[in-house]
Computed example of a mutant assay.
Amino acid sequence: MKFVDEAIVTIKSGSGGAGCVSFRRERFIEKGGPDGGDGGDGGDVILRVDPSKRTLYDYRRQKNLRAQNGAPGLGRQKRGKNGSHCYLSLPPGTIVFDAQTSQVLVDLTDPDKEIVIAQGGMGGRGNKRFATSTNRVPRFAQPGIPGVEMKLRLELKLMADVGLVGLPNAGKSTLISAMSAARPKIADYPFTTLTPTIGMVEPPFGEPFAVADIPGLIEGAHEGVGLGIKFLKHIERTGILVHLIDSSDIDPENPLAQFALINNELAMHSDTLANKTQVVVLNKIDLTGTENRIEAFKNALPDQSIFTISAATGKGVKTLIKHLAQLLQPAVPEDKE
């Protein structure tokens, strides 16, 4: 299924059914009183958080969604049937905007939560309701209240505990494959990952946590260059960033060039990303000639804790997983097995 993280839909709640104008007519009763029933209420449009959903793909095709109108009232004081609700099943992390004003209407984060975004119109009252001592034969009833129509913009921001960031070809897809059961496309050229991937990691202690593999960032990403801001938004909700760097590509003369470039893009996108906890990881230590490059990087960043791994061979990955689990669940000792 294609990854879709934005969609615009038009919704409309059901209109209320009209009240009924009716009079009792039975044998031996020539002039019965009013017995018109009320109209049924229109159906609501309801947003439902569905943890099984991963994209907004369904709503690239379904542009118009409507709840059912209420049925009109009937004679003998029979109330019209209420209209059926319309449900939009959305993945966790979906933000719902008013497409006209760009106002945030709701941020859907809680699994299985349901929110009425457009309430159905109330059914009109039948003429039975208007009978009084001075007007015993009312020949009118109320129309139903119209439903509410809105245009919504849906935007998905993936919800993960850890986000992997780095330049293209840093090895993020290989690392998430080594850490979890996720199997993104892997190849030795830039922009192999064209869509975000989430993998669930089971550490040796504590609760499982989710890791998001974000497509590689390049200079100018905050302005949309490369895959740009289309994917930067997906790491805004993560608690921790793993900053992955290809150790074989470190320039000994300017060892922090890659590190600074990515951090600048994060800061230019938002203060939220710039201030997130980062775990710096040097990857591809299995390649020859990386020792001096790694040493130059560590010397240039002496106050930073730095992990060295080979995502391809698995070396150092378990240690990294334990550290991430401890950061996410600080009550659990890191050295617990």
Rank of each mutant, 00 (worst) to 15 (best):
F231R: 07
F231L: 00
F231E: 01
F231D: 02
L232Q: 01
L232V: 04
K233C: 03
K233Q: 10
H234M: 06
I235A: 01
I235P: 02
I235M: 09
E236H: 11
E236R: 06
R237P: 03
R237N: 11
R237A: 09
T238R: 05
T238C: 13
G239D: 12
G239W: 13
I240F: 05
I240A: 10
I240R: 10
L241M: 12
L241W: 10
L241D: 01
V242L: 10
V242T: 08
H243G: 09
H243D: 13
L244M: 04
L244S: 00
I245G: 10
I245Q: 05
D246Y: 03
D246I: 11
S248E: 09
S248Y: 11
S248K: 09
S248D: 06
I250C: 03
I250M: 03
D251I: 10
D251R: 04
D251Y: 02
D251C: 13
E253P: 03
N254K: 07
N254E: 09
N254M: 12
N254A: 11
P255E: 04
P255C: 00
L256F: 12
L256K: 15
A257E: 15
Q258K: 08
F259H: 15
A260G: 04
A260K: 13
L261F: 04
L261H: 06
I262S: 04
N263G: 00
N263F: 02
N264M: 07
N264R: 13
E265M: 14
E265H: 15
A267V: 02
A267W: 02
A267F: 11
M268N: 14
M268H: 12
H269I: 00
H269A: 07
S270D: 03
S270A: 08
D271I: 08
D271R: 05
T272F: 05
